[in-house]
Amino acid sequence: MIRHIVMWRVAGETEQQRADTRLRVKAAFEGLRARIPGMTGLEIGVDISRVDYACDLVLVAEFQSREALDAYATHPAHAEVREALDGLRIARHQVDYVIEC
């Protein structure tokens, strides 16, 4: 099993714009549930700490294998989400690792 974690900062001139963007990103990625072969779990969290160094959102997904994660990267549904959200995410951090059972 592979865990895929991505954290983003989102665009917005005002706090309301950023809040709207956070919800839009969250909803878009939640729409991928049950659409990606080999994805066994997907969770999206919105930061509640509001500290200045925190990211706005985190995605935690689990995949059956490295091949399933690689396929997710190019899956058409994932590509649609990336295109729809282009420019809304201004910083991105990622970690992928093997889950030791």
Rank of each mutant, 00 (worst) to 15 (best):
A91Y: 11
H4Y: 12
G38A: 09
A73Q: 13
C55R: 12
A79H: 12
S65R: 03
V51D: 14
D70P: 10
V81E: 04
A71L: 10
G41S: 14
E62L: 00
D20P: 05
L85E: 02
R82I: 02
A28C: 04
A79M: 12
E80A: 08
H75D: 10
V6Y: 10
R35A: 15
Q94M: 12
L88V: 00
R35V: 09
L42Y: 01
V58E: 01
A19T: 08
V25K: 02
S49I: 10
R50M: 14
I2Q: 01
A61C: 02
Y97T: 04
F29T: 01
A91V: 10
L42N: 01
F63D: 00
E100K: 02
R33T: 11
A77E: 15
I2R: 00
S65T: 11
L42H: 01
G38P: 08
F63A: 00
V25Y: 02
V81M: 06
E15F: 10
L57G: 07
D52K: 12
R33S: 13
H4Q: 04
A28V: 05
R24S: 06
H78Q: 11
A91L: 12
E100Y: 04
S49V: 11
I48T: 09
G31T: 03
E83H: 05
F63P: 00
M7H: 06
A84H: 07
